[in-house]
């Protein structure tokens, strides 16, 4: 799914104490692209992700997905759109403790009142794809953090969303679990052509993307495109992070 963001902005708080979280951002995400959103804490990554995913409304601007302006939709229609076309992975997993793994994963399909056969088929497919079949009957509190995030990914992907939003998906994971998750995300992106938007502040995580945009103080500071070599891309991201942090790569070296 193609996403076009046109001049969106968002303020939090009231007149005097207002914080400009996003200031007139525009960007375009192509169908099947794996876009990373990076920036320091408070830069506006999550706010941007929330607005594109219709979890928050922008104060100004448009968000056009496959030609449809989502900002013009009623709350109820936005929710339906979100449920049918979007999947979410959060740093805090956002799994429902009351439900077991299977119930958590199939919840989006159950919410859509899909038929039982389709639910079972999709569930088996996702379990095999993400290699977590053996977890299906477990309760959430019996899983490791890495397993929880994979389950959250399975839930996000079960209804074949056009767009997958991931907000710091590796934030709570150890490096091994993070790598497994990112490999799965890349796999889904390539195999299912799912457009992925991922907010992260971790360069290693971002190096799995096809393109990374950098946000600072609510505006797009710059962007880096994956040249096809992940190591090189990783280095570029690190450089850009240093630049955003207040100096260039060379400045840092000279200081040393």
């Amino acid at each position: 799914m193609q996403i076009i963001v046109k001049n969106i902005s968002k303020d939090f708080g009231k007149k005097r104490s207002a914080v400009h979280a996003i200031k007139d951002i525009s960007l375009k995400v192509e169908h099947g692209e794996f876009l990373g959103i990076m920036g320091p804490s408070g830069a506006g990554k999550t706010t941007l992700l929330n607005m594109i995913s219709t979890n928050e409304r922008p104060d100004h601007g448009q968000i056009i997905v496959d030609g449809q302006d989502l900002t013009q939709l009623h709350d109820r229609d936005q929710t339906k759109y979100r449920r049918n076309k979007m999947g979410f992975i959060y740093q805090s997993f956002e799994l429902l403790d009351s439900l077991n793994v299977k119930e958590n994963v199939i919840l989006p399909l159950a919410l859509n009142r899909s038929n039982k056969k389709l639910i079972e088929e999709r569930f088996d497919y996702m379990m095999n794809l993400l290699n977590i079949k053996k977890l299906s009957k477990r309760n959430i509190d019996e899983l490791s953090l890495g397993q929880r995030q994979i389950v959250a990914a399975a839930r996000a992907l079960i209804n074949s969303p056009g767009i997958l939003f991931a907000d710091e998906p590796t934030g709570s994971l150890d490096s091994k679990s993070a790598t497994i998750l990112l490999n799965y995300m890349q796999l889904v992106n390539q195999r299912e052509k799912t457009t992925i938007l991922m907010a992260t502040h971790d360069a290693f995580t971002a190096s799995y993307c096809s393109r990374v945009i950098f946000i600072k103080d609510g505006v797009v500071f710059s962007e880096v495109v994956n040249p096809g070599n992940r190591d090189k891309f990783f280095e570029q991201i690190i450089n850009m992070q240093r630049t955003i942090g207040g100096g260039s790569y060379f400045n840092v070296s000279q200081d040393n």
Partner: peptide
């Protein structure tokens, strides 16, 4: 707290307000 959180999670994953 965790019960309230679950209702919030539902909303995050696309459950309608009416539900």
């Amino acid at each position: 707290d965790y019960q309230s959180r679950q209702l919030r999670t539902l909303q995050k994953i696309g459950v309608e307000e009416s539900e």
